[in-house]
Every structure is written in C-alpha cells, then in structure tokens.
C-alpha cells in the first residue's frame, strides 16, 4: 500500500500535462475501482489527478452527425437515465443498469467504466502469483478456481475476463472512444480499445499512460426497437457476469437487416464475432438461426475446468437474448432473463 499526493485539475490540457509528469500518476474520477484497488494494495498511484472538475467532459450532447457524445465524466446513472440514451440507445441503458449497484453507478463515470480491472480472484489477492499484476509470476487460475474466467481469446498467460456490462453494450453499438494526449486527440474504435491478454496481460487496453479518455461517441444508428441485454450471474443482482450478452438488431420484412451481438464475461475484452453477425444478416430472426450463429461465436472456446459450463451457457444465452431482443418489453430489472 502507498500514500499519494492529490491534485485537482480543471481542463483536459492540464490533466494531460499533469499525467505526463509521472509514470505512476493516475487520474481519479468516480474512484469506485481505483480506490478499491489501492486499498487492496493492487494499485499504487504516487499521485492522484482529480479530473472531476473538468467541465467539458461532463455533458451528453447530440453531434452534427446525429450521433451522441457521452462525456467521460458523466456518471453511469446519468448516462443510463439520460432521455436520449434511454430512447435512442436503450441497450446501453439496460447494460449500465445491470452493473454494480445504484450507489456505485451514481459515482462511477463512463471513462472509468472502460478502465475497470478484472475481478479474477488471483489478481485481487496480492500474494498470489498473477501475470497481470506481476508479469512472469504465473497464472494459478488455469489450474485453480476459474468459474468466472475466460473461454474465448485466452492466452497461456492469463484467462481473466473484463468485467464491465456497459462496455458490452458499447461494443455492440460500435461506439468510439475519444482520447486526448500530449500529441493531440485520437479516436479508437470500441472493439480496438480493450486487448486480449496475449503475451502482455498486464495491459488491459490500448490507452497510453499519458492519455485521457475524454468521452465516447455513439454512431447515429437506431437500435431502439429490437435490443436486449442479458446478464447471467450467481445472484440476481450486484454480482459480475458469468456470461452476458448484448444484442441490437434491425429487421426488414421480418428478416435481420443488421445485428450486433457482443458477449461479456467470456474474454479479456468485450467479444464480437463479425462473421456470425454477417451470417445472420438477411436471415429470419428465429432460434434455429440464432443457435447456428451462437455456435459460430463459441467455436474457438476453451474451458479450464470450473468454467467449462460457459461454453454451452454462452450458446443458450445468445439464443435467449436474441429472442428477447424481439420483445424488449419483456426485460426485467437487473438484466435477468425474460419470464
């Protein structure tokens, strides 16, 4: 554990300048994950740069393109209940409200949600070996307790999963992450933001240390008619997903015109399978087709013992959620399955 200095900044430029000064500095916004990690002696920020006063990152606004810009500092709650988000991008609202608890969503921010770290037991126990926390020390999860762990895109080094719900919807909605750094601004496609563990499990995403997430952009696409978020977990609320599925689709003459399927709880990043989505386009939205697509999505899945069930569960969850998406009004609180 460590002590740290603390400084408030008011502009994005100031924030970037401050973070550039120290490789061990961290931004703090909601703090709901960073403070947790710091108390567990897992994060060791030498200095905290409080960005909560950066007013330009606090808005939700419609862009000229018709898309929607979500400020990085808007809280998860304010985003979920925002009038435009909940009518035009209700999938995002549903996914956000399936995560954490109301209290945490009132503090946690959109930017922070992208940067939350895995809940792997071994990562969270500072005295266990863990390649993500202590590269080269090993991964006890592979031969240990891995009920919560990944089945897709795993590496020999790490089978941790990325725990967000919001990001699963953002991946399905083809959001863009807006980033500022010392060399100016850049945009990162959502599916490129998080990484697979590969040989560097210590890196969760492609954000550089001296960069800041300023916001997210949702494209001008309407998925307000057919959508669903399903979250399966070991209790009905306030638990991380074992498997979650975000589905957004548009139909034309009872055929799938466009469909997006993103999975949570199964990989080191939100999981999309473009091939499976393409397979479904032009087909009828029925169990048979969804099952075929689901099987395509999990075809490379690999279990590690405790989490073997996730392979079959993923298929069932994908099918169920795609069927639920045809009747979004059947969604229940906490992204539970429809009755």
């Amino acid at each position: 554990m460590n002590n740290f200095t603390y400084k408030k900044v008011e502009t994005i430029n100031e924030a970037v300048q401050e973070i550039s000064k120290n490789k061990k500095a961290n931004f703090i916004a909601g703090g709901t994950n960073l403070i947790d990690l710091w108390k567990y002696d897992l994060a060791h920020p030498e200095s905290l740069i409080d960005i909560n006063s950066v007013s330009t990152m606090k808005q939700i606004k419609v862009l000229e393109s018709g898309g929607l810009s979500l400020g990085a500092l808007v809280t998860n709650s304010d985003t979920a209940y925002d009038a435009i988000v909940s009518t035009k991008y209700p999938l995002l609202s549903r996914a956000i409200l399936a995560g954490a608890s109301a209290q945490i969503r009132n503090s946690a921010t959109n930017g922070g949600n992208l940067l939350q770290r895995t809940r792997c037991y071994y990562f969270y126990d500072k005295t266990s070996p863990c390649n993500k926390r202590n590269p080269g020390s090993g991964c006890p999860a592979k031969n240990g307790l891995n009920r919560m762990h990944a089945i897709l895109g795993t590496s020999e080094n790490c089978i941790a999963v990325f725990p967000s719900d919001m990001c699963i919807a953002l991946a399905a909605l083809d959001a863009t992450v807006n980033v500022s750094g010392p060399n100016g601004d850049r945009k990162i496609a959502f599916t490129d933001f998080h990484r697979l563990a590969g040989n560097s499990p210590e890196k969760d995403n492609n954000l550089e240390h001296d960069e800041i997430i300023t916001g997210l952009t949702l494209p001008n696409e309407d998925f307000s008619q057919y959508y669903s978020y399903l979250k399966l977990r070991d209790r009905n609320s306030y638990a991380f997903a074992l498997v979650s599925v975000a589905t957004a689709m548009r139909l034309e003459h009872n055929k799938i015109e466009t469909i997006r399927i993103a999975l949570g709880g199964v990989a080191h990043k939100p999981w999309r399978d473009f091939e499976a989505e393409q397979f479904l386009e032009g087909k009828e939205p029925n169990r048979k087709n969804f099952t075929e697509a689901a099987k395509m999505i999990i075809k490379t899945a690999k279990g590690y013992g405790d989490n073997d069930f996730k392979i079959e569960l993923s298929v069932k969850a994908i099918v169920r959620n795609c069927m639920m998406a045809l009747h979004p009004e059947t969604q229940r609180p906490g992204a539970q399955p429809s009755l």
């Binding site: 603390y6 703090g31 403070i35 409080d50 209290q103 009132n106 503090s107």
Partner: peptide
C-alpha cells in the same frame, strides 16, 4: 452498501470516495 450516504442528494458509497474529492 453499509457506508451509503447522500452526497449532494445522491446515494453513494463513502468507502469508495476520498474525503478530498
């Protein structure tokens, strides 16, 4: 949730916040 307080009218977890913030 035992540490829930209302901060500027909203319920938050006081354990996941720093006083300085």
């Amino acid at each position: 949730g035992a540490c829930t307080v209302l901060c500027d009218g909203k319920r938050i977890l006081s354990c996941l916040s720093l006083a300085v913030m």
